[in-house]
Amino acid sequence: MLPQDIVFASNSTGSDLSVFFLMGIPGLEDLHLWISIPFCSVFSVALIGNCTLLYVIKTESSLHKPMFYFLAMLAVIDLVLSTTTVPKILSIFWFNSREISFNACLMQMFFLHSFSIMESALLLAMAFDRYVAICNPLRYTTILTNSVIVKIGLAALFRAVLLMVPLPFLLRRLPYCQSHVISHCYCEHMAVVKLACADTTFNNIYGIIVALFIVGLDLLFIVLSYIKILRAVLSLASKEEQLKAFGTCGSHISAILVFYIPVVLSSTVHRFGRVVAPHVHILMANFYLLFPPMMNPIVYGVRTKQIRVRVLLWFQGKSF
């Protein structure tokens, strides 16, 4: 189906909400097959890396600690984010399969945004873990018990669901009486809102408030945690102790940068959308979606000795 055929089909649907059409990357349709190569490669690395990480954490008893439980949760979140969106993106690139039902679109959007919020919460929880480990090492095991870790995970899930449940209902109440063509690779909230032929002020405000609430608060508490960590580390007597303490935070700091830098870049491009080509915006949005799930297992695999050793033994054909 060619782009002009999609426009005709979407116009012919009238107010029918049964079918929407994903454009992929507008302006780069002729390059979809080539673009699919890095997309598929990154997706494969993300799947293999996160599954390997989960397997190593499950089978290696020395990794049954709070930080690695949080890391396992992060790996699950990254797997859900990848599998929720990338298969459909690849089907657009490979088979020109652009149709998506409205219900499937809302479901994809719900999972995408919910698990992104959960990832932010997990990074905050991991910052708290590092704070306790460095600033209150003697109370580490009594503060971060298994029950506390479960409660943190459930709180992250509850917050994400609570904030995202209104989205499908807010979008369902809007009329879509014109084009049903979504200028994106997946059902992102604002891309769907733009199709509505009604006042979407409330939807726009709600999306901005949620984004500021999540990114702003989580990032603020992460920064505060690391300010306290920095003070504690600098109070240590020797340089060796300081480097060792900083070394325990290296992987987490890398994970924070991997997650938040694409978020900031994508948001910046979105805000200046009028002067930035649409395909640049879409590519940045996909970068934000694909990059963290690929990089997190690599970062922790390289920087964590126990994980690195076990993976090397695995590839050498030795038993765990």
Rank of each mutant, 00 (worst) to 15 (best):
M1T: 10
M1Q: 09
M1L: 09
D5M: 05
F8R: 12
A9P: 00
A9S: 13
S12L: 10
G14H: 08
S18K: 11
P26R: 05
E29F: 06
L31P: 00
I35C: 10
S36V: 07
S41K: 00
V42E: 05
S44H: 05
V45E: 04
I48R: 08
C51K: 12
V56H: 11
S61W: 01
Y69P: 00
A72P: 07
L74R: 00
V76N: 10
V80D: 09
L81A: 10
L81F: 02
S82L: 15
T84G: 11
T84W: 07
K88M: 11
W94C: 08
N96L: 11
I100R: 05
I100T: 08
I100W: 08
Q108F: 10
M109S: 10
L112S: 14
L112Q: 13
H113C: 08
I117A: 05
A121K: 02
L122M: 08
L123A: 07
L123E: 04
M126G: 05
D129I: 01
V132Y: 00
I134Q: 02
N136M: 14
L138N: 09
L138M: 05
T141R: 15
V150A: 10
K151H: 03
I152A: 02
A160V: 02
L163A: 03
P166C: 03
L167V: 12
F169L: 11
R172Q: 14
L174R: 01
C177I: 01
H180A: 01
H180K: 10
V181E: 11
H189G: 00
K194T: 03
N203H: 05
Y206E: 09
G207T: 11
V210N: 09
A211Q: 06
F213A: 13
F213Q: 09
L219M: 14
I222C: 14
R231H: 14
A232N: 07
L234V: 03
L234Q: 15
L236I: 07
L236R: 15
F246L: 15
G247I: 00
H252D: 09
H252W: 02
A255E: 04
A255Y: 03
V258E: 10
V258S: 15
I261V: 15
P262T: 13
S266I: 01
S266E: 04
T268L: 15
V269F: 06
R271H: 07
R274P: 00
A277L: 04
P278G: 02
H281D: 04
I282E: 12
M284F: 14
A285M: 13
Y288M: 15
L289R: 12
L289H: 14
M295E: 11
I298G: 00
G301Y: 08
G301V: 09
G301I: 06
I307R: 07
V311A: 02
L312V: 13
L313A: 03
F315D: 00
F315N: 04
